[in-house]
Amino acid sequence: MIDIILLTLLVVVAIAIIRMKDLFAVVMLLGIYGLLSASFFVAMDAVDVAFTEAAVGAGISTLLMLVVIAMTGRKEKTNRHKPLPALCIVLITGGLLIYGTFDMPHFGAADAPIHQHVAPRYINDSMAEVGVPNIVTSVLASYRAFDTFGEVVVIFTAGIGVLTLLSVARRKEDAEKISSINDSMHEQHLVIRIVAKMLIPFIFLFALYVQFHGDFGPGGGFQAGVIFAAAIILYAMLFGLNTARKVINQTFIQLIAAVGVLLYGSVGIVSLMNDGNFFNYNVLASDPIAGQHLGILLIEWGVGCTVASVMMIIFFSFAGRLELHQHNERVKNQESS
């Protein structure tokens, strides 16, 4: 029942996104869409995924979009060539998918092929083979560790890509001047500054909890990394980019992003050295289960480091551009007046 309600809400939000012209509203609706789908994932028992989707879909991506809108303006132009071809493509694709559903196993059926093959071993044997109660973690970090490695590399790639596109080379004095103006605007936010100061330690604490508790409950390196980055981003938003840059050195976080990937990969290489296959944690310690635990702990750290630092890199790159934009506009206004 609850899933049908959530799905209906999702449809409503999707239609609203299509119809809205105000990009600000669209972005907020996208955040709602992310949050609703996260709730749907909870209803579908996918707590880990829900956690991630809430952090990413409703959190980080909304934030990034808002920063971009601040630079590009919030109105979508209304006039637009006929949507008919698009409608055709969508109808064909959708029709094909619906055609495909007719032979699909029914929703929730326990005898569907996916519940019969491959998955039962994870459910029945993972405790004996990996020794971690959260099956998602043991599949993620051990059985399919290489996929997760790929995921970390994807994030790393995105970080480097954003850096190449958005990093601005500027002289130091300029940076000081630009930031000092912006920082003075932040001075007014007394209440949130105090509240944030109280909250940020708790957010860090929570990030660490999620990092280490991933073996037993929902959580893990990725979620922890995003939460950690969120605390820093909150700090940067309230105390000004320049202050945040002083706290967090930019070259340093790039280094950490690289170190995370390397840490993850070197766990695999160490297992190669010990005559195991790549990512075979069994050979890391004398007892296979202890080896698995050690391996999972290390790679989760790798994931956490890379994700946290790349999220920060992305935010700082976008916000740095925004700062530059605002500065340029201010200069232009001064010249014209």
Partner: peptide
């Protein structure tokens, strides 16, 4: 015996190391 994985891993691991060089 590990050639198949080294094939992919060598350029992969080289990328973050480049960032440090």
């Amino acid at each position: 015996a590990h050639l198949p994985i080294l094939q992919v891993i060598i350029p992969l691991m080289a990328a973050p190391i480049c960032l440090m060089l």
